[in-house]
Structures are given as C-alpha cells and as structure tokens.
Amino acid sequence: MKFAFNRSASLNSIVLAGLLATVGASAMAQAPAAPATAPAAAAAAGKPAGHHGDRMARHDPAKMQAWIAKRQADMKAKLKITPAQEGAWTSYTASMQPPARGARPTPEQRAEFDKLTTPQRIDKMKEMRTQRMAEMNAAMDKRSEATKTFYAALTPEQQKTFDAEHKKHGGRHHGGPRGHGPAPIKG
C-alpha cells in the first residue's frame, strides 16, 4: 500500500481547524457568565451569607469599617470593659484598624517602569515586594504588642472571654489587611 501526501488537503485541514478554534474561542468570550449574587457566591463557597469573608465587603471600605465597628462593639460588650479600662480598649482598637491603602502608581511612574528591561522589572518588583512584606510584618508586630498590652489590662475573667472569642476566629487579628492576621499556631 502506498501513502500519498496531499499537501493541499493538509493545509486546508489546518486552516479549517484554526478557523473553528477561533470561532469557538470568540463565542465563549462573548457569552458572559451569569453574575453571582453575594449570598449565592458565599453559599457556593460554603460560607453563610453576610460572612466576614464576603469579597464585596473587602472592596467596600464603608462596609468593612461597619463590620469592624460592629465586631469591636460586640467584643467590648462581652468583655464588659470598665471605665478604668477604657484607655487600654481605645489603644487596642486603634491598633487594629486596617492600614491605609497604598498609593496607586502615577502615569509617570508607570512609564518609567515600562522602560525597564524584563530583568530590571523583576528586580524592581522583588524590591517592592520586600518593602511591602517588611511593612506588613511591622504592622503585625504592632498589633501583637497592642493585643498583649490590652490583654494584661483585663481581669482573669475578661481574659477567658477574650481567649474564647479569639479561638472562635482562629486567633486572627481582625481588622488587618483584608481582615486577616497571623495563622493560628498548631502544635
């Protein structure tokens, strides 16, 4: 049996396959996915509606601030903060506020970044990441020290309540970037 190669048929098959792939990809790109509502998205993620991990709250500073204020008011009520402890409470809650968002790059900074070669951009991004991590570590250290100072001002009964509340939430220091803090320590 002799195999005959038909160059024209092979080229036509390749062109046809390419056209079909292009049409299929453009059809998929034009069909938008149905937007999920916040409660539906939370339920799909296995979280109750209104859960603090709701992505919308993360992007809405007013909602995030309202959630933090509510959580702090609930904690203050559970701890039964006395007038003598009010100063320690105020210092503690102030330290738990999320940091201000970093400034967005200006068009001039963006243009300078675009002029860099790929290795230079990689080095610049590494430098920026190192600086950001140092800032995050300093903020976490500040929150940790503020928590220890506040904890020391509590009565033994209040400390038990504080411990119980923090265990419920995995020991996180809520109010940090995106509501996250250090991961719980597992022994």
Rank of each mutant, 00 (worst) to 15 (best):
F3N: 07
S10Y: 03
N12V: 13
S13R: 10
L16M: 06
L16P: 00
A21M: 13
T22F: 13
T22L: 14
V23Y: 07
A29W: 13
A40C: 03
A40H: 01
A41K: 13
A44V: 08
K47H: 11
K47Y: 07
H51W: 13
D54P: 00
D54I: 01
R55V: 13
R55Q: 12
M56E: 14
A62V: 14
K63W: 03
Q65Y: 03
I68Y: 00
I68Q: 02
I68G: 01
A73E: 10
M75E: 15
K76P: 00
P83N: 11
P83Q: 11
E86A: 11
G87V: 08
A88Q: 01
S91P: 06
M96W: 01
A100I: 04
G102S: 06
G102T: 05
A103G: 02
E112S: 15
D114M: 06
L116I: 07
T117I: 02
T118W: 00
T118M: 10
R121F: 00
I122M: 11
D123V: 11
K124R: 14
M128W: 10
R129F: 08
R129C: 04
T130E: 06
N137M: 12
A138W: 01
A139R: 11
M140T: 09
M140D: 10
S144L: 05
S144D: 11
A153T: 01
P156W: 09
P156H: 12
Q158D: 05
F162T: 03
F162Y: 09
A164S: 08
E165T: 08
E165V: 07
E165C: 07
E165F: 12
H166D: 10
H169G: 09
G170P: 00
G171F: 02
H173W: 01
H174E: 09
H174A: 09
P184Q: 05
I185E: 13
I185G: 12
K186V: 10
K186P: 00
